[in-house]
Amino acid sequence: MCVALGLLCFAGSSALGQATPLRVTINAKAGLQYDVVRFEAKPASKVELKLVNNDDMAHNLVLTKPGQRETVANAALALGTEGDAKNWVPDLDSVLFSTPVLKPDSSHVLRFITPKLPGVYPYVCTFPGHGLLMYGAMYVGVPMPPLEKDGNVPEAARQGKTEARQFHAWGEKRPLMYRIFMPEASPAAIAVALKHGQNYCWDAGQCRLRYAWYGGFVDPWPVWRGNGHGLAKVLGTKYWESDVPGSIKIGDSEAEPKFLGYRKVDGQPEFHYRVNGVDVYELITPLHSVIGIQRSFRIPNNTKPVVLPVGPTGRVAFEHSAGKLKDGLLALTAGEAASFTVSIGLIK
């Protein structure tokens, strides 16, 4: 259908055959971003748009009619199990052109004729959950406003954050963790960037997950620029924040948890702490098809019942592999708790 529309435009234009197409290359980057968040094109002109996927997860690019970005992204989500077969492109008139879903390190060239009607035509990654952050706009026959005032590009790009500052000798990498002063956490906080633009804050002072966000990681500069005064800034959208205080509870004791460190598993920390004399191991990994994280717990050598505060569970896609959930608390038997997972997904 998109192709048909393109052909229609082509057929209706006379001088197009000779014109050199406008060539645009857009890279999909880590942290759910396109590196080019906007470009200008003339009405009814040829465009060769090359999408290069430099990220470690799948992405596509869908051009929509003006104002239809969110509608299209939400309709893609609703495809559910049919999504993969359709490249996550919904059957809607508001979809103009689209690439297939590109695996990491692949590219695709989309050739099309821009619409005759001047306007701002959004493009968006409709892979589930990505559309919230990963989008841009094609300006057809209308001038672009200053970037910092452009409501058609993501907030991070408006703030000039697309070019991430290099803080280390290794450039950008995920997973990555910082022990650093964080907002809404104790001074012994840990910030972790996982793959797929997933991030979380875990509190080594209280041995518990504090919040999770998607998008960029943190700006450590407020802490690192000088003597450590300041807090790292979360560069993304927080979608879950613990509202049930306290660490995991083992048995009846109200004993304070004791942080014992972590082991790096594929670059991701598996936290180790001790509660009421029992060793607990917690590994947090990204979910794959949707925005979200999975918490994998191991509590070997335990004979006591376990209660894990997991709230809030209402506004996220919360899943647990074992136990009974009530009022933000997950209750497990010692057997269930030996190895279990809970996941927090953005999309309900």
């Binding site: 104790s186 001074p187 012994a188 300041g230």
Partner: peptide, 21 residues
């Protein structure tokens, strides 16, 4: 390359004040 970060002691306090080096 290090794999394991083992806390030997973290039993002292922190207020988050920058000068608590």
């Amino acid at each position: 390359v290090a794999d394991r970060y083992q806390t030997i002691h973290d039993g002292f306090g922190m207020t988050g004040n920058y000068h608590e080096f």
